[in-house]
């Protein structure tokens, strides 16, 4: 399995996935399809499965005119995802030392333990010697940020949107940078005196970064 670098391989994968999805039949037996095509609807049949080679675009003008234009501020209020390229990372910074304080103050310790390896809930800390990746062959292995997560941007994204568990989404961006720093420090991916900002989150090379491959199951007789 080749392991192409960078996000670019996902562009190729986007062309692979629909080939799998298209193995199913159309919508013939499933129930009522959309009603009569509205004036101005694009000529492409709504149920035509993508074949991965042609890209499709929406209509040049609204077809039905339902809905309200979204303003930039409305979009900004909800547009919280952080891309693997760092897109969406906010200004600000935090230190590992501050992160260790955040770890206590926001009670991260209650679910993840003093250093992220004690539980009782998801393990966050732990490397595998040589950064090997024997998860398929060793059922006892537990995945962690250090041995399984491919992007530190995901760590920032998930922590900011969903943590701490009892007060989700309430940490400041500076607190998130700091506590992400603490988790990377727990995993020996940052030094104790590190200052974490957007560049550090993007540039921190995660050990499992190149381990992920597209789905190669295609239906048919082969078990994959």
């Amino acid at each position: 399995m080749s392991r192409a670098n960078g996000v670019s391989r996902w562009l190729a994968m986007a062309a692979l996935v629909p080939a799998l999805a298209a193995c199913g039949p159309g919508d013939s037996a499933g129930g009522a399809e959309a009603g009569n095509a509205a004036p101005g609807a694009a000529a492409v049949a709504p149920s035509d499965p993508g074949n991965g080679t042609t890209q499709r675009a929406g209509a040049a003008e609204p077809v039905y005119g339902f809905g309200t234009p979204a303003t930039a501020s409305q979009i900004a209020a909800w547009d919280i995802d952080i891309g693997p390229d760092g897109a969406g990372l906010p200004p600000g910074q935090g230190t590992v030392a501050e992160g260790l304080e955040v770890w206590e103050r926001h009670r991260c310790v209650l679910c993840h333990g003093p250093t992220g390896r004690e539980g009782p809930n998801d393990l966050l800390t732990g490397r595998i010697p040589g950064d090997e990746f024997p998860f398929a062959n060793d059922r006892s292995l537990r995945s962690t940020v250090g041995n399984y997560w491919p992007y530190a941007t995901t760590l920032f994204d998930y922590t900011r949107r969903a943590m701490p568990f009892d007060l989700p989404g309430t940490m400041t961006d500076e607190e998130v940078y700091a506590v992400v720093g603490a988790m990377l420090y727990f995993n020996d991916l940052l030094p104790a005196d590190a200052v974490v900002d957007s560049a550090v989150v993007v540039d921190t090379r995660m050990p499992a970064r190149d381990r992920f491959v597209p789905d190669n199951r295609t239906g048919g007789p082969t078990i994959r």
């Binding site: 399995m1 392991r3 799998l20 998860f135 398929a136 499992a208 491959v213 597209p214 199951r217």
Partner: peptide
């Protein structure tokens, strides 16, 4: 995770 040391991602179907 797969035996060759990779992990299958976006395995939707």
């Amino acid at each position: 995770p797969l035996p060759d040391g990779t992990s299958r991602q976006f395995s939707f179907v």
